[in-house]
Each structure stands twice: as C-alpha cells, then as structure tokens.
C-alpha cells in the first residue's frame, strides 16, 4: 500500500523521540550526574540523547590522543637536574616532521664549539602542524609528546601560534598524568623512569636508577624531598659563594647568544 514505507520510517523517528524520554526516566533525573552515568551514556549502551554538555562536562580524550606537541622536561624540584630538557636536539623530529614545522637551534659549547645535547631554542608553528604524532613516535629520547590540551583558541595568531621552548616545555609529571599507560610502557623500554642518557650513565657508574618517576617518589617520601631541597639549597649556596654572580651568568649567556647569532649570520651568509 502506498504510504506504508513512509509510515514505517516515521515509526523509526518516533522511536528515537520516545527513547529520549525513556532514557531520561531510566536515569531518574540523574542523567547528567556521576561518572558512571556518563560512561554509559557515551558508550555503546547509550540510548536516546547522548549529547555532551560541553563545557559543563567534557569527554576526556583517550591516552593516545594527539594534539599539538610539547616538550618533556624534568620537574622543577628534580634532585639531579631540575627543569632539564629531555630533548638533546638530535633533530630527528625536525627531520621527520611532514610539514616541516619544527625549528630547532642546537646549543654549542661556548669554548669548544662542540654541540651540546640541549636545544637553545625550539619552535613549533602550530599553524602548520598537522598533529600527526611523528615527532613523538620517532624521538629516541621520549622528549617530545603529543599534548591533550585542545582548548587553544585565541584572538590573534601572529604572536601566539609559534610555540617556543618555554611554552612547549611541560614537566614529566604532566606527561605521566595524561598518558600513564604509555609512559609506563616507554619507561620499561628505556629501562627506568629517567632520561635515557641518565639511565645509561647511572648503569655505567653503578648508581641505582629511580624505581618510580620522581614526582611519585617525592610524594611518597617526604624525606627524599627534603633531602633534595637541602641539596639544592647547598648547591645554590655554593654557587653564591663562588665568585660567579647572577649578573655574570646573565652576561655570559648574553655573550654566548650574541656569539651564536654571529655564527648563524656567518653560516647563513655563506649559504647564500
């Protein structure tokens, strides 16, 4: 009979319509409360409306989620090397990056002119980055990782959309928090929770490697923290005692930078 097909179709829409209310009743008004309900609502058992009430609730992104990359650095109170970059400026990420949006300036020793395994500057143009994750995948030092923070919208791009090193650097603790399983797998592959070079050095010298990432140790063991603090204070005092003052260090850094710039200029001139 003519029209039955349409009626059948309308039946489906009606079912969807009713389901919304059945679903509301099923939750007894607590549909938008509690993690449990959220999990069901956003999963395969979902029926009826399954809208995410952004920004009041957000779907947390899964571990492997890729947005723009960031650089892993040690925590500020890390006992061995506070705030140290994991990146050794080996350049692999810049080479493998498909749209070539990573710029790295390798540090040089001011005296010997030998490269120092540490980036002097690190830029990622997020207006080019395609969030592909190659940099994170191929970095041999687990130093660059894909961030989960997608809330980056802003009103101007000229000044903000090239992420530089301070903006890119995030502590290891942050990385562990966004991707605990992956971090653990990687730590296992490295043979410890520290930077691969540190692990290598420690293994060589027979020092024990950290059993856990530093921020966990510190949380578990307040003594360790105190010890680290004290050590750092002592170091700082020693530094203060020595003749090198803050200003001197700053001046030296300035000189180094000027020198690097000059070198770069020469290099660029030669290239042209």
């Amino acid at each position: 009979m003519n029209g039955t097909g349409i009626l059948k179709g309308l039946g489906v829409t009606l079912k969807h319509f009713i389901q919304t209310y059945v679903d509301d009743i099923r939750y007894g008004g607590r549909k938008y409360l509690g993690m449990e309900n959220f999990e069901v609502r956003q999963g395969l058992k979902a029926q009826g409306a399954f809208t995410v009430q952004y920004p009041d609730e957000k779907i947390a992104v899964p571990e492997r989620f890729r947005f723009v990359p960031f650089l892993v650095v040690n925590e500020d109170d890390h006992p061995d090397a506070p705030g140290k970059d994991w990146c050794t400026s080996c350049g692999i990420c810049a080479k493998v990056c498909p749209p070539q949006c990573i710029w790295i300036v390798r540090s040089e020793d001011p005296v010997t002119k030998r490269p120092v395994p540490e980036p002097e500057a690190f830029f990622i143009d997020i207006d080019i980055c395609m969030n592909c994750g190659y940099c994170a995948e191929f970095c041999p030092f687990d130093a660059i990782k894909m961030d989960h923070d997608y809330e980056l919208a802003d009103f101007d791009r000229t000044g903000t959309h090239i992420h530089d090193k301070p903006k890119l650097s995030k502590p290891y603790e942050y990385y562990y928090n966004i991707a605990p399983t992956t971090a653990a797998e990687e730590a296992q592959a490295r043979g410890g929770w520290e930077h691969p070079d540190v692990i290598k050095a420690k293994k060589k010298s027979g020092e024990p490697v950290m059993e856990q990432p530093w921020f966990m140790l510190r949380a578990e063991d307040p003594e360790a923290r105190a010890r680290a603090e004290a050590e750092r204070a002592a170091k700082a005092a020693a530094a203060a005692e020595s003749t090198v003052s803050e200003a001197d260090i700053a001046a030296e850094r300035q000189a180094r930078r000027a020198e690097a710039l000059a070198r770069h200029r020469a290099w660029a001139a030669k290239k042209n």
């Binding site: 999990e39 999963g43 957000k58 947390a60 992104v61 989960h148 923070d149 997608y150 605990p180």
Partner: peptide, 11 residues
Amino acid sequence: STAVTVNDKVR
C-alpha cells in the same frame, strides 16, 4: 582516558 581540562569526564 585521563582528565586534563576542567570538567573532564573519564571513560
């Protein structure tokens, strides 16, 4: 998933 931003809900 793990929560990063405010109001993140985990599955």
